[in-house]
Design a protein around this nucleic acid. Structure first.
Lengths: 152, 152
DNA sequence: CGCCAATCATTTGCATGCAAATGAGCAGCC
DNA sequence: GGCTGCTCATTTGCATGCAAATGATTGGCG
């Protein structure tokens, strides 16, 4: 009778008390998914992903910046930022040129269209932020941000 | 001289006070990235990704389960869970068969190897969880988990 | 000068993640 | 029975995300 219910109970001891739903990894993945969905919906009219928005915003902020440096600021590794930047360039939102002093580096610069686009969607980004935090009280919102920042 | 510094200052007003680094989206993405890195490193000896671990664990927990249902429990849409399950089956960690009552559904079941593997790595998952939360105090850890759960 | 380690960028391969379209099957309803 | 709408699963296409390998270039060091 002990073996009649399949593999489940044969490993009950090892799995006892292990609730995936209570683990940071699971909760982070879920919360992140939800935010991406909200952000994407709010940006549907311009089709900017969260990473594209971040990369373009930092480029506008800094004016001229190296691709890898931008990646570090935006929390994307070289392989990832490469694709993000490529898509932004294709859409005419930024430009890329080689540095004359260091011919390895690609120096990025936003185009007029890029600057204008970012300026026009900052409000949407704020909105997505608020909506994502909507289930929390004002104090809780401050807390999550501080805690997530600490988890780096 | 107002136009001598490139596009940056021309949009200063619109961007004023907007700090991407303080937004939930950015912080969630970064924290999630860090956890994936920790989890992946801890699971390197068995090469289980966080999603694969979750999917296999829930399957072991529940014994027999429909693919889409598993996806909902594990927070993955049908297109995503499909690939995850396929890779687990290829590795011999679960089985799939058609339900006789409802021939649309793929009924999943863990293999002996799958049950054994999960049991052997639960400790590693716990470890990744702890390491990810390491920068926080015990009270703070409880807080983040509660807050993330609420942000669902 | 020549060598070497480090950095920059790119490419390939693999694994999420989702939208949207598709095909199969089920269940209720007339 | 036939219609219709739903769910299940799959496929395609696109966008992260990272490891690992590659090629170009720079800077330091002897």
């Amino acid at each position: 009778m002990a073996t009649s219910e399949g593999p489940t109970n044969r490993s009950a001891e090892a799995l006892a008390g292990f609730i995936v739903e209570d683990h940071v990894g699971f909760l982070l993945r879920r919360a992140h998914q939800r935010h991406v969905a909200l952000f994407t919906a709010g940006m549907a009219h311009v089709a900017l992903t969260p990473t594209q928005f971040t990369a373009l915003l930092k480029t506008v902020e800094l004016g001229r910046i190296t691709q890898n440096h931008l990646g570090r600021l935006a929390a994307m590794d070289p392989a990832t930022i490469q694709g993000v930047v490529r898509r932004l360039i294709v859409r005419g939102l930024m430009r890329s040129g080689r540095d004359r002093m260091d011919r390895r580096t690609a120096v990025l610069e936003p185009t007029e269209a890029g600057v204008a686009l970012i300026a026009s969607v900052v409000a949407c980004a704020r909105q997505a932020h608020e909506t994502a935090l909507a289930p929390l009280s004002p104090e809780e919102r401050v807390q999550v941000l501080a805690l997530l920042r600490k988890m780096g």
